[in-house]
Design a binder for these strands. Structure first.
Lengths: 170, 170
DNA sequence: ACTTTAAGTCAGCCTTGTTGACATTCCAAG
DNA sequence: CTTGGAATGTCAACAAGGCTGACTTAAAGT
């Protein structure tokens, strides 16, 4: 198994990881792990006037500075009314800057201000501490498997979005 | 590496999977994958008068029939008022049955009715289809890694809850 | 000129989380 | 036997963050 090869006709024994019980454990692992995944930034945000929605917006603006509202909408998968609400508060609070597009003046390009970057760093650090600890405990092979399964779990459009972001950041 | 051993002083090369960029990709993978993870049951539920909270309750009642409200509270990590709201609607709608405890009559033990089990099966099937496909695409080694990382990402109390459930189901 | 697109806004609704206050019922310890 | 605490349930109020629908403005495309 170490070489990763798989016989053309997969034997019954190899399918034991696909039993309903195994799938259920995977489902429950996702549920509990996601709670841990969001717990640390949530704790920080609860002291401020922001929530998880702000965290997501701030994360992806930091990831792709100058992104348009429409692009962010596609990444986040919410309506523009929902996004606009969190965006407006963060612009008012001086965390996000909205600049009119040069070539297309209808578009607004979004950037984090210094204050925005500071908050982003605080939230990211908290989330990365847990992620780093989990990755270190699990080891590189487990991390590779983790990412493989997560990618396979995404919708096709999300896979493309994820890959595009991944490649832009490398 | 196949034997899983790790030198006492971990070399720099082995830590490449712990760079901030790798961690960020892991964080984004979790975000996008969780959306996929919940998408199918959410679609089914949107046609009914229920939401994700109902799905979670119904899942764990099915998993541990006869569980008390308090126990369910600990698993789900919400307040009793939140849980009570979804529980009440499902009891009214005849999906969940609440029986007074025998030894301790303060406790209510929760069971799914036939209708409840039918809905649970419908939701689980939808979620399992995606999970099975992701697991199959990724292969058994990746799945093992996936679960290792997820477990390491949980809070300690969630790990215990998760393990207890896992062992009760095996 | 007309249509489409990007963005923003207003109003209203739903789900799901939160606190706080309070009643009931029952077990168990003094 | 009484009383304190635990488990449950309920009411009220509120907030975050989703949603739809309708509409405006401005710019771009055709």
């Amino acid at each position: 198994m170490a070489d990763g090869r798989m016989p053309a006709a997969i034997s019954g024994e190899n399918l034991l990881f696909l039993t309903d019980e195994q799938l259920r454990q995977g489902i429950e692992a996702m549920f509990f792990a996601y709670r841990g995944f969001t717990a640390d930034p949530d704790r920080i945000l609860s002291n401020l006037a922001y929530g998880r929605a702000h965290h997501r917006a701030i994360h992806f603006i930091n990831r792709a500075p100058g992104t348009t509202v429409n692009n962010l909408l596609n990444i986040l998968g919410v309506t523009k009314q929902s996004l606009n609400r969190v965006l407006r508060t963060m612009i008012e609070d001086g965390l996000v800057e909205s600049r009119v597009g040069k070539s297309d003046k209808r578009e607004r390009h979004l950037y984090l201000t210094d204050a925005g970057r500071a908050l982003e760093g605080q939230l990211s650090d908290a989330q990365r501490v847990r992620m780093r600890s989990a990755f270190r405990d699990a080891g590189p092979d487990a991390v590779a498997g983790f990412r493989t399964v997560l990618e396979a779990m995404m919708d096709t459009e999300m896979q493309r979005t994820y890959t595009r972001l991944k490649e832009s950041g490398a």
